[in-house]
Simulated assay, not measured.
Amino acid sequence: MADPNQLPNNYYEDLRVLQATDFTLVELTLYLDTHPDDLEALKQFNSAAQKSTGLRDAFEKQYGPLRQFGHSYSAYPWQWNKVPWPWQV
């Protein structure tokens, strides 16, 4: 019998791409805090934010919720009791 908690093959790569995009957002946030008039950096930030939203939505639809406290929806039945949780991988 297959392990019901086994992660799909693409899980780690999809999570890595999402985390890399979110890291870009952190770096651009720090840069824009000291360079608020840099239009190109702001365009990059907005583009990365849109990409992150799309990646996160696709990831959650395929693998389950990433964020708690109402920031991620859960399919039925409740998905937060499935392991591993995002911070465990």
Rank of each mutant, 00 (worst) to 15 (best):
M1P: 02
D3N: 15
N5W: 00
N5L: 06
N5F: 03
Q6M: 11
N9H: 07
N10S: 15
E13F: 04
L15N: 04
L15E: 06
V17F: 02
L18E: 08
L18W: 02
Q19C: 02
Q19I: 04
Q19E: 11
Q19N: 12
T21G: 09
T21C: 15
T21F: 04
T21R: 08
T24W: 01
T24D: 15
E27G: 05
L30A: 12
L30H: 08
L30M: 11
Y31R: 07
L32G: 03
T34D: 06
T34H: 05
T34N: 07
H35Q: 06
H35Y: 02
P36N: 06
P36D: 04
D37H: 09
D38Y: 01
L39N: 08
E40W: 04
E40H: 09
A41G: 12
K43T: 09
K43P: 00
Q44R: 11
F45K: 04
N46P: 00
N46L: 09
A48W: 00
A49F: 00
K51Y: 01
D57T: 15
D57K: 15
D57A: 15
E60K: 08
E60N: 10
E60R: 08
Q62T: 15
Q62C: 06
Q62I: 10
P65Q: 06
P65L: 05
P65R: 03
L66P: 06
L66E: 07
R67K: 11
R67A: 07
R67S: 05
Q68P: 00
Q68K: 14
Q68V: 13
F69D: 02
G70H: 01
G70V: 03
H71N: 09
H71K: 13
H71W: 02
H71F: 06
S72P: 08
Y73S: 14
Y73H: 09
A75Y: 00
A75H: 02
Y76M: 05
Y76W: 01
W78I: 12
W78R: 14
W80M: 14
N81L: 14
K82E: 10
K82C: 05
P86T: 07
W87F: 14
Q88C: 03
Q88S: 06
